[in-house]
Design a protein around this nucleic acid. Sequence first.
DNA 1: TATAATAATGATAATTATTATCATTATACA
DNA 2: TGTATAATGATAATAATTATCATTATTATA
Lengths: 138, 138
Amino acid sequence: MDVIHSKLDRNNYRLTDQRKAILDVMLENQGSHLSAEEVLWEAKKKFPNIGIATVYRTLEKLANLDILHKSMFEGNKFRYELAEDDKHHHHHVVCLNCGQISEVSGDLLHELESKLEQQGYKIIDHELKFYGYCPACK
Amino acid sequence: MDVIHSKLDRNNYRLTDQRKAILDVMLENQGSHLSAEEVLWEAKKKFPNIGIATVYRTLEKLANLDILHKSMFEGNKFRYELAEDDKHHHHHVVCLNCGQISEVSGDLLHELESKLEQQGYKIIDHELKFYGYCPACK
DNA sequence: TATAATAATGATAATTATTATCATTATACA
DNA sequence: TGTATAATGATAATAATTATCATTATTATA
């Protein structure tokens, strides 16, 4: 939480009540992947007349600061989750049937895959993306 | 190409001129990731009054048959590329600066990462998703 | 402290990608 | 040939996200 505060400070972002409400929602829902609308309804419990625009703006800002991680699994909408400190790895298992998203950790692709199968998953496919800069842009 | 035809036959999909145009576009653009709109404009060169709805319907069908791979990198829109035969692995490098998407092949996460760095990339982040069925649904 | 400059907000309009609808056309098949 | 069905194109509808803008809150400064 201190890390978050200092990141906000460093970037001259005011910690308004609305932003505090959104951060609290994310902190209370570690591990789950919330859509902007879901965040809105949860945040409304803490700050009833918060607007959807503020939610979008705040989520975007927090994602840019690596406080949140933004990803898309299905359904044409982005989902946000609290990023683990300094971890830039996001390994997920998405169930094609129920849509449940679980976290995975580990290093080797096949090692991971067989570990998951040992845990009872049936792996059909996987997707790996690297983000960075290409030689021309670096 | 025969593989594609037999897949379509097997599922009772007619190979109309419009679908042929779309498939040709995808075959001519192997390795690049086209949005539905980009496919539309390319397909119009071959079949001028093809409609956007047909493009969306066809891309969706072809993706369901694993003829195309559907993915999203940024910009809130899906992109499609020809799937390599029976390969269910999609490794991409997305340049955060120019948006260029390149293919990667290999097995080990860190091995890949260091190989990419050797090739001149600067890797900031990566994302790995497994698709399958969880123990409860399997 | 008073005031000016700036940041943040909420309401809502605008945009954009995608999906649904529906009348028309093309195709397969009896 | 006639009939059932599939596919299409135009376009309306939907849904997520972004932009606009007047208002409010906060900070900096005189």
